[in-house]
């Protein structure tokens, strides 16, 4: 009697089970709407002449033609020297940032210090992160002048924020066994840090320094804004003042090639530091481990927050 009804119900039920309703994600829609409004609003109001957009493809091709058709090879020595100067600024800057961020990173780690100390340390790190390099650079000009040293100092100071934050995250991820062991053996806070924390974190933190160095190579172009040396200054002078496009093409090529070479070396060293001597199973010859373009925010999923995360080893 009620056979077909049950059947019907069963079919309906099966439908319900096999095709679950797509969950409605309000948050996602809000984000999409905000982005759309931001984009349309900005595009409609921004001060850009239409001519600049329409001329873009043709002008770009034209000037690239001037730069590379053919580039001025006589410029190579000067460009190389300038690029080495940029590398120097980036390296010294990174070392300054490393030295200054190292103690702060410990103070900003929740597993080592109490909440108020961590809070203050984190705010100091945020402060350094929010100020652009150019601001530090301008502040330093009266002290060290229009020199690469000013750029190195500016890069160093502005590296403190990111380096400190990422290092603190490394420190928070340590194994607590050794800390307890040092504690049990009567070690004070400094001794615990020296003997239980530092040996665990130093490889990853050094890898972070190297990765920051790669970023600072790019950031060292900021020197060009005020004319404090390096490849940035050379390129900007060639393009906007001398309009020597062939020379600029050479300088650009030298910059890109040397940047990529240094990236590759630094990436390999970083991988070696993190993974140890065993030969990692390579997926693709040069897998960079993290973002070279920016400062790593927290990533979801299996990738940890530090510089060592490569593609996971194949099963």
């Amino acid at each position: 009697m009620n056979g077909p009804t049950t059947d019907e119900q069963a079919r309906q039920r099966l439908e319900e089970i096999t095709r679950p309703e797509k969950p409605f994600n309000r948050f996602k829609w809000i984000v999409t709407a905000v982005l759309l409004v931001m984009f349309l609003g900005s595009s409609a109001t921004v001060d850009v002449q239409l001519g600049q957009i329409t001329a873009l493809p043709e002008r770009t091709v034209f000037y690239l033609g001037l730069m590379f058709g053919p580039p001025d090879l006589g410029e190579i020595p000067r460009a190389t020297t300038a690029m080495i100067e940029s590398l120097g600024m980036a390296w010294i800057g990174t070392m300054i940032g490393a030295a200054l961020s190292f103690p702060l990173a410990f103070l900003a780690a929740t597993n080592l210090f109490s909440k108020p100390i961590v809070f203050v340390a984190r705010q100091i790190l945020n402060l350094f992160r929010a100020v652009p390099e150019i601001v530090f650079l301008i502040m330093l000009l009266p002290v060290t002048g229009l020199t690469p040293v000013s750029v190195a100092l500016a890069l160093g100071i502005s590296s403190i924020g990111t380096l400190g934050k990422l290092s603190a995250e490394v420190i928070e991820g340590i194994d607590h066994g050794p800390v307890e062991a040092a504690d049990a053996a009567g070690g004070g806070r400094l001794q615990r840090i020296r003997w239980s924390v530092i040996p665990q974190v130093i490889p990853e933190i050094v890898a972070l320094w190297l990765y920051r160095f790669e970023i600072n190579i790019r950031n060292s172009a900021v020197a060009g804004a005020v004319g404090a040396g390096g490849i940035g200054t050379l390129l900007i002078r060639q393009i906007s003042q001398l309009r020597d496009w062939a020379a600029a093409g050479t300088a650009l090529a030298v910059m890109v090639i040397l940047t990529l070479i240094v990236d590759t070396i630094s990436g390999r060293v970083r991988r070696r530091i993190i993974r140890g001597p065993q030969r990692a199973v390579d997926i693709g010859a040069d897998e960079d481990d993290d973002d070279g373009g920016g400062r790593t925010p927290k990533v979801p999923g299996p990738a940890p927050t530090t510089a060592g995360n490569g593609p996971l080893a194949p099963i």
Binding site: Q52, A55, L56, R59, T60, F62, Y63, R218, N219, S220, A221, V222, G224, A225, G232, L235, I236, I239, S240, R243, L252, M255, V256, T259, L260, D263
Partner: peptide, 15 residues
Amino acid sequence: AIPDLIYAVFFVAAI
């Protein structure tokens, strides 16, 4: 490998 400032100076010169 190319810093944003260099992109900027190129496009300022171009357009």
